[in-house]
Amino acid sequence: MQNKDPQGDPTVATLLTWFVPGAGHLYLGRPLFALVAFLLVEGVYLLGLWLTDGRAFEILPAEMRSQFAPFLAPELGNLGAMLFQSSRFGFGTGAPSVWPDTMNLGMALTSFGGILNVLLMSRAHFDARASKAAPGLRPEAAALACWVLPGLGQILQGRRLRGILMFVMLVGLFAIGTTMGEGANLDRERHYFYWGGQFMLGVPALFAEMIHGHAPLDHEVPYHDLAVVMGCVAGLLNVLVMVDAYGWSESLRIGRDPKHGLTAEGTP
């Protein structure tokens, strides 16, 4: 099923997409897809930028600011837009002012814009290698499903037990940590970098943040650190869950046995 006549270099297509969403597909000779992808990814990012007044990096505490601090945020997935945001808005003017009411929603959108572009990069890489692929769930769609709900990608692939186990382990880890820490981890302003890891857990983390709100810490929370670490670990582990779902669908679409994993015998 692999394409014998590749349209372009997968690495070039991936890097182009990283800088400008859709550019990789333009390079691969698919201008319409490139335009739609550009509008979608940049639309989500710019909406977030508008809702935050471009102040998403301003919430970083002064002592943690550096030229490379924004590179440790989920926005990094959309490098061009992130560099635009950094150069245009940076860490703000320094004058104290109230955050916009839509600050948290906006930051979730700019971060999601980064995730979307990473998935688009993976699609550009796949399309450059195998444009004539077998039908079935696309690899990046399976990965996105895992971001929406950990394990959902595996369930859609027919691997129900695996998907359910992944969901229970990761959402359980996150829920226990968050409960014991009284939700202290659910705030990007309080834990900028850890929030970035936790964001990878996807919708469950955002939903918890939405229903819990962003209450000020007016008392000592004994398990504050535990909540931060467990939330972040759950999010980072979900990246592996996304990779697992991606790899399975990719193998099926290019005609390989998906059960030949990273360590199994016969791996090409």
Binding site: R162, L165, M166, M169, L170, G172, L173, V233, A234, L237, L240, V241, V243, D244, G247, W248, P258, K259, H260, G261, L262, T263, A264
Partner: peptide, 12 residues
């Protein structure tokens, strides 16, 4: 959770 997820990734 850590070993479970990494095991599943290593062994499809």
């Amino acid at each position: 959770a850590i070993v479970g997820v990494t095991t599943m990734l290593a062994e499809p």
